[in-house]
Design a protein around this nucleic acid. Structure first.
Length: 284
DNA sequence: CCTGCCGCCTGCGCGC
DNA sequence: TGCGCGCAGGCGGCAG
């Protein structure tokens, strides 16, 4: 699944591939891909023709393309979305949803999304920060992320720690995979009651999240030369470097105890039962 | 205001 | 062999 590091890799690819280019035409082949654009796909396409992409931006898992008039194309990849820069003669992908053609006749920008959880929207006045994502917190790789404010906010919540990590209004860019990895590194249980945590514990799990995402980005940044994300929306990083996610029954890399998969929040959570024991103060 | 849950969507792998 | 079901999960919207 594309989480922050994967989205950042895509953003860098778009920065090389589409900045400075003028859109000549847009084709929307699946209405769900632009469902957040309330005026519909035809309006989305018509209004983008003639506009020039001037930059690429990202916050958490959202990325957007500021345009020359102060608007922006905002994108979320969801579970399976890809933004590809490909030669025009490339055969259409099975799950091609939106095609951007440019006036220079060069590579097209294509939004491909098997499960259609992702989507695009034209955000008026959204070049600096699209208003529709104003509620999304800065991510931990953002230089302006406020560690102290995050620590205080988490300790004021009355919820389980993993719920807080996945709450995009507290911290963005963290999905199920990186949440489990960060919790394992910090030796904390996913249900740990946030209001009972010490400031040091919150800083510890924040540092762990930042660390695992930075390392993933370094890996992705070196192994990706194009915008390609594999069919699972995953970079090669995952198969080698995940310590707990997807490793049910395999030994903990620290203590050798078999790792467990447990249902939490209607999804799977992976933990080491010895390094991350069930806390006395918990929110399930 | 705060918190938790549901539904959206498709392909794959499993069991019968 | 074929079918049905569970699973993957981010997040907007809404209920309590």
């Amino acid at each position: 699944m594309p989480e922050l590091p994967e989205v950042e890799v895509v953003r860098r690819g778009l920065d090389r591939g589409v900045v400075g280019r003028t859109i000549s035409a847009v084709e929307v082949s699946h209405p769900r891909a632009v469902r957040r654009h309330l005026a519909g796909g035809a309006d989305f396409a018509a209004r983008l023709a003639g506009r020039t992409v001037v930059a690429t931006r990202r916050r958490g898992k959202y990325l957007w393309l500021p345009l020359d008039d102060g608007d922006a194309v905002l994108a979320h990849l969801g579970m399976s979305g890809q933004l590809l820069v490909v030669p025009p003669e490339t055969a259409d992908e099975v799950h091609l949803r939106v095609r951007f053609v440019f006036t220079d006749g060069g590579a097209e920008l294509r939004f491909v999304d098997q499960r259609t959880f992702g989507g695009l929207v034209l955000s008026e006045g959204g070049a600096e920060l699209p208003p529709v994502i104003a509620h999304i917190a800065r991510d931990p790789l953002d230089p302006q992320f406020d560690d102290a404010a995050f620590t205080a906010a988490v300790r004021h919540r009355h919820t389980g720690l993993k719920r807080a990590l996945l709450d995009q209004s507290l911290i963005s860019g963290v999905g199920n995979i990186y949440a489990d990895e960060a919790l394992w590194r910090a030796k904390l249980h996913y249900a740990r009651a946030t209001e009972s945590m010490t400031p040091g514990q919150v800083r510890s799990v924040l540092a762990a999240a930042r660390g695992v995402m930075s390392e993933a980005l370094d890996e992705g940044g070196t192994s990706f030369d194009s915008l390609y994300v594999d069919v699972n929306g995953e970079s090669g990083y995952f198969s080698r470097a995940l310590a707990v996610y997807g490793r049910e029954g395999e030994p903990c890399l620290r203590c050798g105890t078999p790792l467990r998969r447990e249902p939490f929040m209607n999804r799977s959570s992976f933990r080491c039962p010895r390094c991350q024991p069930t806390p006395r103060r918990a929110h399930w």
